[in-house]
């Protein structure tokens, strides 16, 4: 099946649960094949990503994922401006630490990071998958990285 691992990876990161990711992927593929008419050429991977994404978001909303309801661009950004880059000592992050930090981010941040860093999509492609304006993709990605960096950082001098 085309792009199966990529679809699974996105669903796994959005749901943060192996079991739920299974359901999301299964549902997405059935939808993809049923509504194949909705696909009008182009890269099938983006199209599939957008189906997985919509399926996961529906699920997140239904399952009371508060992060989605409470997500607010403004709320998630201004405090970070106060941080001086020099205060951020990037901890040598192993895989588990990274994984945990990434999972702590709101779904909207996880999504852009997964699409950019793991799936290596360009900004334009992320905009296509998420239906967000290019500028929003850019700023969201920037904030997501900033948040991730803060989560991974320890105050200078305390690095073990």
């Amino acid at each position: 099946m085309p792009h199966f691992d990529a679809a699974y990876n996105l669903a796994r990161w959005l749901t943060r649960s192996a079991e739920d990711a299974d359901d999301m992927v299964q549902e997405s593929y059935l939808r993809a094949f049923t509504f194949f008419d909705g696909f009008r050429g182009g890269d099938a991977r983006w199209w599939l990503f957008s189906i997985v994404r919509n399926t996961c978001y529906t699920w997140l909303r239904k399952n009371g994922a508060q992060e989605l309801m409470e997500f607010d661009e403004a709320q998630h950004s201004p405090a970070s401006n106060a941080l001086n880059p020099e205060d951020l000592q990037l901890r040598r992050a192993d895989r588990e630490t990274l994984r945990e930090a990434l999972e702590k981010l709101p779904a909207e941040f996880r999504e852009v990071l997964v699409l950019r860093e793991i799936e290596d999509l360009a900004y334009k492609e992320i905009a296509e998958v998420t239906g967000l304006p290019l500028g929003t993709v850019m700023s969201r990605l920037s904030r997501a990285r900033r948040r991730l960096q803060e989560l991974l950082a320890v105050p200078a001098g305390q690095e073990s």
């Binding site: 699974y8 990876n9 299974d22 992927v25 593929y29 990434l102 860093e117 793991i118 991730l148």
Partner: peptide, 24 residues
């Protein structure tokens, strides 16, 4: 450094074979 860490961190989840079979 963050990019490199994520890129090299093999954060990609692989779909279990059982799922592939059941979706098929």
């Amino acid at each position: 450094a963050l990019r490199t860490a994520i890129g090299a961190g093999s954060l990609r989840y692989r779909a279990p074979d059982t799922l592939k079979k059941s979706v098929q």
